[in-house]
Write a protein that binds this DNA or RNA. Sequence first.
DNA 1: ATGGATCACTAGACAGTGTCAAGTTAAGAA
DNA 2: TTCTTAACTTGACACTGTCTAGTGATCCAT
Lengths: 203, 203
Amino acid sequence: MTMKPADDLRRSVLDASLALIAERGLAGLSMREAARRAGVSHQAPYHHFGDREGILAAIVGEGFVELAADCRAAIEGIDDPIARLEACGQAYIRFAMRRPAHFKLMFRSEHVSAPRHDEIMAKGESAFDLLIRTAHDAAVGGIGEADDALAITSWGLAHGIATLLIEGKLEKKCGDDPRAQLAAAMQALSTFSAMQRAARKKV
Amino acid sequence: MTMKPADDLRRSVLDASLALIAERGLAGLSMREAARRAGVSHQAPYHHFGDREGILAAIVGEGFVELAADCRAAIEGIDDPIARLEACGQAYIRFAMRRPAHFKLMFRSEHVSAPRHDEIMAKGESAFDLLIRTAHDAAVGGIGEADDALAITSWGLAHGIATLLIEGKLEKKCGDDPRAQLAAAMQALSTFSAMQRAARKKV
DNA sequence: ATGGATCACTAGACAGTGTCAAGTTAAGAA
DNA sequence: TTCTTAACTTGACACTGTCTAGTGATCCAT
C-alpha cells in the first residue's frame, strides 16, 4: 500500500510544521511558512487540514499513538505492579523529553479543541486510556485498596515532573545538563515507588 | 503615595489584558485590543511595557508574589512538617485554579524569556524559591535523610495535579464539577502525605 | 467517448496583528 | 525663555489566518 501523492503533500506539510515548531517554538508555526517550505501555495495545506488547528490535531493524534506504544513497550516483561507503574512513568517522561512539542499540544486545552477533531482525539485517547488503566491497575494491585486516588497521584507526579523538565524549571536545582535533569526526574519516580512499597508493607 | 496618571494607564492596560485573557484565552490577548479597551491609541501600551512580552512579564511577576503569599499563609501555624508540605501543595493547587492564566504564564518557558525581564522574574522567583525551600525543609524534616529528591517529587506532584486540573484533563475521571475535581486533587495530596508518613515510620 | 462532478491545488483579497519611525503636546529644569 | 524628557498619537510595513473565486486534472456513469 503505497502513499498517494495527496498523502505525500499532507506528510511534507506536517513535517515542515514540526521542523518549524522545533526551530521557532509552538507560536512560530505558521500555515504560510509551512506551505512555503513544502513548496506549495499558501492555501494548499487548508485542503488537507482545513484549519490551522487541523495541523495541531494531527500532531496530537500521532503523539498519543507514540506515547501509548512507548508505555506498552516499557512495561512489557515486568511483573511487579509497582515496578510496572514506575516503568510507565519513565516512558512518559522520556516521551515528553523526546517530543516536547507533541507533549505540550497533547496536554494543553487551548490548542486543539477536543469536541472538534473528535475522531482523531478518540483514536489517540483510547490508546492513552490504556496507559492510564495500566497505571491504575498497577497501583491498585500494589497497594491493595485505594482506587482512583493512587492512579491520579501517580499520573500527576509523572505529568508534573515531565512538565517541569521540558519547561526548564529543573535547571536551577539540577544544572543545565539534560542528562542530570533526567536523572533527577527518574530519582523522583523511584522515591515515589519506594514510598509506595513502604506504605504497602505497613498495611 | 497616590498613583501617578502614568501608572494609572499602566494599570488599566494590565487589567484590560487580564480581562481579555479571561475571555479569549492566552492567545486572545492583543496589544491593540487591550489599548482599545483602555481607551488609548494602539501604541500607548508600548510606552509602559515595551513589548507584548512586557505585559506577560508583569503578569508573571504579580503571579509569583501572590503564590508565595498564599503558600506562606497556608503553612502558618502548622508544625508537623508533612502537614506543612501538604498545606503548601493545597495552596499551590488552589492558586492554579483561581488564576489559571497566571499559572500557565509563570511555568511555561515560551511566553516570557527569563534573561530579559530578569528584574521582574528575580523579584518573583525569590519569593517562589522560599516556597520551594519550605517544601524542601518540610520534606527533609519529615523523612530524615533523602534531600533533593523528595522536594522535587513533592513539587512535581503538586505541579502535575495543578496542571492536569486547569487543563481539564481530570474531567473524564472526576466529572465536570470543578469542586469534585478539586476534591480529587486534594485527595491525591493526602494520599501522598499518607505514603510519606508510612515510609517514615518504616525507617 | 463524453459530459459532469469531484479533487488538489493556485491566486487574490481582507481584516487583524506586532512593531518601527516620526510627529505632537505638556511639564519641568537650566 | 529655551531645552529636555515623558507620555502619548498617527501612519506605515510585513506578516498572519482565512474567505472567495478560479483552474486543470481525474474519475465515473451514461
